[in-house]
């Protein structure tokens, strides 16, 4: 699971009003090289919750992302490279995602998060 996906995921247990962001608990992660595409990054930038991305990257030990960002930085190649690496190249392999409100754990196994809910959570 890439951090892009993590940035989009929220918890949809019935009754949970603020199921975003899910906290990452990672025991194994890896970096896979992905083709760089600046247009995609510029396009997706507005949809990314930056703070969530920074926090998630920190869990995986990647701390090069700047804390404050604005859209003018999208012209800088250096920034885009970092953004690209954090968003698309870091994969969570084993661990869990934790709902901020209920503390419910969604296990991540072989890079696949299990978002299935139990019957009483629907």
């Amino acid at each position: 699971m890439r951090l892009l996906t993590h940035n989009m995921l929220s918890c949809n247990i019935k009754g949970v009003t603020n199921g975003y962001p899910l906290t990452i608990e990672a025991s194994k992660w890896m970096a896979k090289e992905v083709d760089f595409n600046g247009d995609f990054l510029r396009n997706i930038f507005v949809k990314i919750e930056w703070k969530v991305l920074i926090e998630a990257a920190k869990v995986m030990g990647y701390t090069d992302l700047p804390v404050e960002v604005d859209s003018s930085m999208l012209n800088s190649d250096e920034f885009l490279q970092k953004f690209h690496h954090a968003l698309l190249e870091i994969h969570v392999e084993e661990g869990a995602l934790i709902c901020p409100e209920t503390g419910r754990k969604f296990p991540v196994h072989k890079g696949i998060p299990n978002m299935l809910l139990n019957e009483d959570e629907v």
Binding site: M1, R2, L4, T5, N7, M8, L9, S10, C11, N12, G19, Y20, K47, E49, G111, I112, P113, N114, M115, L116, L117, V122
Partner: peptide
């Protein structure tokens, strides 16, 4: 792409306006 194990009948656990 990334894949996840989820049941669409339980609703999609995604942030609004993200797709």
């Amino acid at each position: 792409g990334d894949v996840m194990l989820a049941d669409m009948g339980q609703g999609l656990a995604l942030k609004p306006g993200s797709i």
